[in-house]
């Protein structure tokens, strides 16, 4: 199975820092906007920032594979909002969020920038950890309901003896 993770580079070619950033950006993109906003309130004294790219809503063409494993084809688009900003302290943050919520993209970019600075640990604890916990909980709740609908086959004994 091909596993081309990053710009043609295999997953293993990423540095630990890149892997970590990839993980938090993905987490923020898939997060619940309301929960992210609620967690950001906890972050006091956020530094000022300037926009490098204001939030814009766009489409990403989602691709599938023929037969699940073959050559790619275009399935259809999804909405994504992105933006980039630079903190007063110099760090550049990129924000991506599924859907059309510009506030969510802005907060994702802020967190991305903060995670590169001195407050990374505090941000991880106050924002990223609760977002991850919420995603894991939602995912395992669905998996648990699915598991309850798994068929347990048994064979009826038939015949004379």
């Amino acid at each position: 199975m091909r596993k081309v993770a990053a710009m043609g580079k295999p997953e293993t070619a990423l540095s630990p820092d890149q892997k970590a950033r990839k993980a938090w950006m993905g987490l923020l993109a898939k997060s619940d906007a309301a929960l992210l906003a609620e967690r950001m309130v906890e972050m006091a004294d956020l530094p000022g920032f300037e926009w490098l790219r204001r939030p814009e809503v766009g489409g990403v063409m989602v691709r599938g594979r023929m037969g699940g494993t073959g050559a790619p084809f275009n399935l259809g688009e999804m909405t994504v909002t992105r933006c980039s900003l630079r903190l007063a302290t110099g760090e550049v943050g990129h924000g991506y969020a599924q859907g059309r919520d510009k506030r969510q993209a802005e907060q994702a970019a802020l967190v991305d920038a903060l995670m590169q600075g001195a407050r990374a640990e505090a941000v991880r604890e106050a924002v990223l950890a609760p977002l991850e916990a919420a995603q894991v909980a939602a995912r395992s709740a669905r998996a648990a309901k699915a598991a309850a609908t798994k068929v347990d086959f048994f064979t009826m004994v038939r015949g004379e003896d």
């Binding site: 993770a5 990053a6 990839k22 993905g26 599924q98």
Partner: peptide
Amino acid sequence: DIPELGFAIEVG
């Protein structure tokens, strides 16, 4: 793929 980063991320 995110060109400015040089790697891919999940966007949703």
